[in-house]
């Protein structure tokens, strides 16, 4: 009897064991991106730009052409690659320190020029790789090693809502926020990534996909409790949904 594969490793992900912490949702984000590349038959036409921080570990698992950019500069690198090779699928994969702190300038200007690339933003509200420092997305009241036991807005301001910020610009074509805390949410996220990549490959313009993620290690909690934190604390502050999409899709 011929058995049909109903679930297998996406072709763009290597068989190496990943080095993320147990329960980290980076691996889920990696996987759904790779599944979309397979579904679009785009693996061989993809150029990925990875950042600095935990998200850079992805560079060890993706089987596409790729480079790693300096901290925060991934959009500047990616937009040049796309302009030189306009028929390729070019995406960046960046965490919140990279994208919203040191790379805020490149993030906003690349979006404002409407560069035809896709920016995938992993928001876990903390610096992961360096060990739990305050990120631009750290929630009010959240603990971090540089913001004390409770982020105080009087001292350090409020967490950036990146989708809402980018939604102030004219040029972007697709802006959406999803979460990776549950299967239904992960399925939505995958659809959003596919929509963003499709818009890019049709020459549509800039797309920004934020994925609410976790960091049980630096949140000092268990993977299971980290999902609860995402649902009870992060999603209420960072509302999910498609903030902007092309008219023909509505």
């Amino acid at each position: 009897m011929e058995l049909e594969y109903v679930y297998k490793r996406p072709s763009a992900i290597s068989s190496e064991a990943d080095g993320y912490c147990p329960g980290c949702l980076h691996s889920t984000a990696n996987r759904i991106i790779a599944e979309v590349l397979d579904e679009m038959d785009a693996v061989g036409r993809t150029i990925a730009v990875f950042p600095v921080g935990c998200a850079v570990l992805s560079a060890g698992y993706f089987l596409t052409d790729m480079t790693i950019a300096a901290h925060g500069r991934a959009p500047a690198v990616a937009c040049a690659i796309k302009r030189c090779r306009p028929d390729r699928l070019v995406f960046t994969y960046q965490g919140d320190g990279d994208l919203a702190a040191i790379g805020m300038c490149e993030t906003i200007h690349t979006a404002n020029r409407g560069e035809n690339i896709t920016v995938i933003f992993i928001n876990n509200s903390i610096f992961g790789m360096t060990g739990g420092q305050m990120a631009p997305t750290t929630l009010i009241g959240q603990a971090s090693t540089t913001g004390g036991p409770s982020r105080n807005p009087d001292e350090v301001g409020y967490p950036f809502k990146m989708c809402e910020l980018i939604n102030q610009l004219e040029a972007p074509k697709y802006i959406a926020r999803f979460a990776l805390d549950s299967v239904p949410h992960i399925r939505e996220a995958k659809k959003g990534i596919k929509r963003a990549f499709s818009i890019q490959m049709n020459g549509g313009g800039y797309s920004f996909v934020e994925l609410i993620s976790n960091c049980s290690t630096n949140w000092k909690t268990t993977p299971l409790k980290s999902l609860k934190f995402m649902r009870e604390k992060m999603i209420p502050y960072y509302p999910l949904g498609e903030f902007r999409k092309p008219e023909e899709e509505e």
Partner: peptide
Amino acid sequence: IAAINMVYGAGAS
């Protein structure tokens, strides 16, 4: 900084 990183992307291409 952005300009040199754009050059990085173009050179990589």
